[in-house]
Simulated scan of single mutants.
Amino acid sequence: MATVNKRPSGKWQAMVRKDGRSHSKTFTKRADAVKWARETEMLAEQGLLQQTAAGVVSNMSLGQVLERYRDEVTSNKRCVENETYAINGFMRSCKKLSGKRIDKLTTADFVAHRDHRMQRVKPATVVRELGWMQHAIDIACSDWGQRVRDGNPVKQVRRPRVHNGRERRLQAGEWQALLEAVNEARLPLMKPLLRLALETGMRRGELLSMQWMHVDMERCTVFLPLTKNGCARTVPLSPRAMNVLAELPRTEDRCLPLSGNSVRLAFDRLRTRAGVVDITFHDMRHEAVSRFVESGLSLAQVQMISGHRDLRMLMRYTHLQTDDIVAKLHAIGQQVTA
């Protein structure tokens, strides 16, 4: 049975199922997908599909596997934009490794790639890259008829240790410098994006996916049906956050119709223009959570706002409550003495 479906990426996937096995291919044009589906379905009826398919897939290179993985698997993930960008970048910059057949790949190939990348990017980036490469090869073997020697070669690669903890806070004058840089660069939506990030502690992806239908101006909340950790949550909005939303035009479903990549590039330019060193967009979230704690909110209340699943993730902010705790202990001591 043949089916043709449009993918989130805008491409068309044709799939033919026969005797419990499926064969699929992705096309830019629907007409090409329909044509391939009809021809493949005919081969299946004649009993020639397995032989033909096997002859094609046995020669897939890593680049071909990743391209198909990007179109058929990544396109259905929440991180579709970031992973698509990463896969495209890998195929452009690592042509030698991309051009190698996966049945010829060894663990040593990926160890060399890991060591090369570690000189240029952070450990977390390397771990993510190895993750989707390993998954792509697993899918190619389980679903696309590929064969590799001695198991998936990426699985045996030792992952670098990730140190994601950052304590970067905004220093005096940096916030104003960033806002002034936004005005100079004439990026109208970046200013409200930055202000909302600082007021809500929401992640970049959560801010960009925020829809007007989920904003409750009366209750001063916004509902996030899909977050990074997979748990929906309702975020309370401060008066300043409400003012930012009230000033935004409602011309599209999303409150901030920007792409993640455009925000990344724009923030890099703003940081350079403002002369603010070693700060990331995600540091706005750390700054916001720090301010929540400093305002006197309990860690449980902050957890409700920020969406951290594990309270232990917030324990690094407890030092910010030290002065408040000391003041309360002194107050208790004075009452006892009296």
Rank of each mutant, 00 (worst) to 15 (best):
Thr322Ala: 15
Asp310Met: 03
Ser290Ala: 07
Asp310Trp: 03
Gly307Tyr: 09
Asp323Val: 10
Arg285Phe: 09
Leu314Trp: 07
Val289Asn: 01
Gln321Val: 12
Glu294Arg: 15
His308Phe: 03
Ser298Ala: 13
Arg291Asp: 01
Glu287Leu: 11
Gly307Leu: 10
Ser306Asp: 06
Arg316Leu: 05
Leu314Cys: 06
Ser298Met: 11
Glu294Asp: 12
Ser295Arg: 14
Gln303Arg: 14
Glu294Val: 13
His308Cys: 02
Met315Ala: 15
Asp323Pro: 08
Ala288Glu: 03
Asp283Phe: 13
Ser295Asn: 13
His286Pro: 06
Leu299Gly: 02
Asp283Tyr: 12
Arg285Pro: 00
Phe292Ala: 03
Leu299Phe: 06
Leu320Arg: 10
Phe292Ile: 06
Ser298Gln: 10
Ser290Ile: 07
Arg312Phe: 08
Thr322Arg: 15
His286Asp: 08
Leu311Val: 15
Met315Trp: 13
His308Val: 09
Thr322Phe: 14
Leu299Asp: 00
Leu314Asn: 04
Thr318His: 07
Leu297His: 12
Leu311Pro: 02
Arg316Trp: 03
Ser295Asp: 10
Leu311Lys: 07
Val302Phe: 05
Gln301Thr: 10
Thr318Cys: 10
Glu294Leu: 11
Ser298Tyr: 11
Ser290Met: 04
Asp310Ala: 01
Val302Asp: 01
Thr322His: 13
Met315Pro: 00
Arg291Pro: 03
Ala288Thr: 09
Met304Lys: 15
Met304His: 13
Asp323Gly: 06
Thr322Gly: 04
Leu297Arg: 12
His319Asn: 13
Gly296Lys: 09
Ser298Phe: 12
Leu314Pro: 01
Asp283Arg: 11
Met284Trp: 03
Phe292Lys: 00
Tyr317Phe: 05
Glu287Tyr: 07
Arg291His: 12
Met315Leu: 14
Leu314Glu: 03
Ile305Glu: 01
His308Trp: 08
Asp283Leu: 12
Ser298Val: 10
Gly296Met: 10
Ala288Asn: 02
Gln321Ile: 13
Thr318Trp: 10
Ser290Tyr: 07
Met304Tyr: 07
Gly296Leu: 09
Thr322Pro: 04
Arg316Ala: 05
Leu297Gly: 00
Arg309His: 10
Ser290Gln: 00
Arg312Ile: 14
Ile305His: 02
Leu320His: 09
His282Lys: 06
Glu294Cys: 08
Ser298Trp: 08
Met313Cys: 08
His308Ser: 01
Gly296Arg: 08
Leu299Trp: 03
His282Ala: 09
Val302Trp: 03
Ser298Thr: 15
Asp310His: 08
Thr318Ile: 14
Gly296Gln: 09
Gln301Met: 11
His286Val: 12
Met304Cys: 10
Gln301Lys: 12
Gln321Gly: 09
Asp323Ile: 13
Phe292Gln: 06
Leu297Trp: 14
Thr322Ser: 13
Ser290Gly: 09
His286Asn: 08
Met304Gly: 15
Val302His: 01
Glu294Thr: 14
Arg309Val: 09
Arg291Lys: 14
